[in-house]
Computed example of a mutant assay.
Amino acid sequence: MVHLPEKLLNGYRNFMAGRYASETSRYRTLADDGQTPETLMIACCDSRSAPETIFDAGPGELFVVRNVANLVPPYAPDGEYHATSSALEFAVQGLKVKNIVVMGHGRCGGIKSVLGPTHEPLSPGDFIGKWMSLLGPAAEAVSGNTMMTAGERQTALERISIRFSLANLRTFPCVDILEKKGRLNLYGAWFDISTGELWAMNPVTGDFERPRLD
């Protein structure tokens, strides 16, 4: 009896014969000693923009949180369920990460949905619609700009969403305090799926620039 899709099992076989075989001691050390990643990566759950692949990260190097459109909600200790906030809390307070990177990407479906909804909600709960309403005011401002093409509006909001999430990160007391003490660094990045280009946000101007790799 097969309990997983065959494609996944084949991938696992390749993993065991390849990466795990070459990094067995590292995996065992991580199992015995626990994880100590220095960077929390908040990224989109889009299957085309996996942070571990983009940054060629090995096991234990990145603590990754992925959700629709790489959003960080504002600090809200209201007793409700908060997946992204709980992961953030653990990364900052438990793992003591030194860096937080919010990484968006081109052709984001979540961003596209909030810019110009063309379909009915996928379910009565409309969880995606509720989640993306976090960007409502920004989406309204961008979508009203008729001087931009649809593609330009999409890219603009993808990058605005990164600045939005960084601002929301600073509403969390643990993040705000540690950043002001110089013990935590916040970064923004945007990845173009089509070209493989990575753009980093200038912390002073907010502009996105291509980092020099030489």
Results as ranks from 00 to 15, higher is better:
V97W: 00
G182L: 14
E140N: 11
D126F: 07
E179C: 10
R163E: 04
P117Y: 07
P173N: 11
N185V: 09
F172G: 02
S113V: 15
E120R: 10
T146F: 07
Y187W: 05
V101C: 10
E89A: 13
I100K: 04
Y81N: 15
L135P: 02
N168M: 10
Q154R: 11
H82R: 08
H82D: 08
A87T: 13
P173I: 08
P173K: 10
H119P: 02
I128Q: 11
L115K: 11
V101N: 03
A156Y: 12
L169T: 04
K180S: 04
K181F: 11
S85E: 07
A141H: 03
N99H: 12
E80T: 14
S133P: 01
I162R: 00
R159W: 00
P137F: 12
S123M: 07
V102E: 02
T155N: 05
L166C: 05
A150G: 14
T155R: 02
P121K: 04
V92G: 02
L95K: 01
K112R: 11
H105E: 06
R183A: 14
E140K: 09
G188T: 01
G79D: 09
N145D: 10
R153P: 15
R183G: 10
S161T: 08
L178F: 04
F90N: 06
N185L: 11
G104E: 02
G79K: 13
F127D: 14
A156R: 13
R107M: 09
I100T: 07
A139F: 01
R159S: 00
D78L: 06
P124I: 15
G106M: 04
L122D: 07
N185F: 03
D176I: 08
L186C: 15
V175R: 01
V97N: 03
P137K: 14
